[in-house]
């Protein structure tokens, strides 16, 4: 079943075009990795999908429903189905780990606090933070904060999870624990769009890889194809540069 269809999507910051005619179809349970040089529009693509930036052209269809990003109702519906985790964790600094996870279900969804708390504790245990529920973000390492952010995103039971370079801001020794959490979600069949520079990880978990440059999709294919037999010169260039590191 098709989960997400992005059709000739374009976006701009002011007069500067940043995304141009991006096409992508994601099946339910599929993991698509988005790679590309810095500034190629990867974050912008994710930001448009969750309604942080209005597209200038093109359409996004989520679970068969075409999204009108100008409609409050559609925005709410889209944010129910699509959750995002950012590079800089973006946790609410004034709330404990547990509160960060429970706030949206209780305040936005108005669900019963007891039930939400139980679920949140399960989620935090799942990302390996059962003993950190009462800690504030500034008492947690970057890797722990990022795992709380993932738990917070999952608390809304999204159909699609967007991950924007979630390990890029972490010290190298903390990257593994966050990738393990993502692997766990992959095994559970979560549909994900993962922007990452961890090429080994991308090759391992992604069903498909999308290579972007200058706001355009250059090439889409199986990881093996993109990394081992890239068709476009730009992909070849990027892949050889990044794999040498």
């Amino acid at each position: 079943m098709t989960q997400l269809v992005i059709d000739r999507l374009s976006a701009a910051y002011g007069a500067t075009p940043v995304l141009q005619d991006v096409d992508l179809t994601v099946e339910r349970g599929e993991i698509v990795s988005v790679i590309g040089p810095s500034g190629s529009g990867k974050s912008t693509l994710l930001r448009v999908l969750v309604g942080l930036l209005l597209p200038v052209a093109g359409t996004v269809t989520v679970a068969g429903h075409k999204v009108d990003y100008r409609s409050r109702r559609d925005l709410r519906a889209v944010r129910d189905r699509i959750a995002i985790v950012f590079q800089q964790y973006n946790l609410f600094q004034n709330m404990t780990a547990l509160r960060n996870v429970t706030i949206a279900p209780t305040v936005v969804k108005r669900r019963a606090p007891a039930e939400v708390t139980a679920e949140a504790e399960t989620l935090l245990a799942k990302v390996g933070l059962a003993d950190k529920t009462k800690s504030y973000p500034d008492q947690l390492s970057g890797g722990q904060q990022q795992r709380v952010a993932i738990a917070r995103a999952l608390a809304l039971k999204p159909e699609v999870l967007l991950l924007d370079e979630v390990t890029s801001a972490l010290d190298p020794e903390l990257v593994g624990e966050v990738l393990d959490t993502i692997r766990l979600l992959a095994r559970e069949g979560m549909t994900m769009l993962i922007v990452s520079h961890e090429m080994g990880f991308v090759r391992e978990v992604a069903d498909r890889v999308l290579f972007m440059a200058d706001g355009r999709v250059v090439e889409v294919g199986r990881p093996k194809q993109i990394f081992d037999e890239p068709q476009a010169a730009r992909t070849r260039d990027f892949v050889s540069r990044i794999l040498r590191h």
């Binding site: 969750v50 309604g51 942080l52 709410r76 944010r79 129910d80 959750a83 995002i84 950012f86 800089q88 964790y89 973006n90 946790l91 609410f92 600094q93 004034n94 709330m95 706030i103 949206a104 305040v107 936005v108 952010a149 917070r152 995103a153 809304l156």
Partner: peptide, 22 residues
């Protein structure tokens, strides 16, 4: 922090909720 505001928006907070909680 711009980032906390982005997070608030994407988890569905209204403007009033964002002001109150963040």
């Amino acid at each position: 922090r711009r980032q906390e505001l982005d997070a608030a928006e994407t988890i569905g907070f209204s403007r009033v909720q964002t002001i109150r909680y963040v």
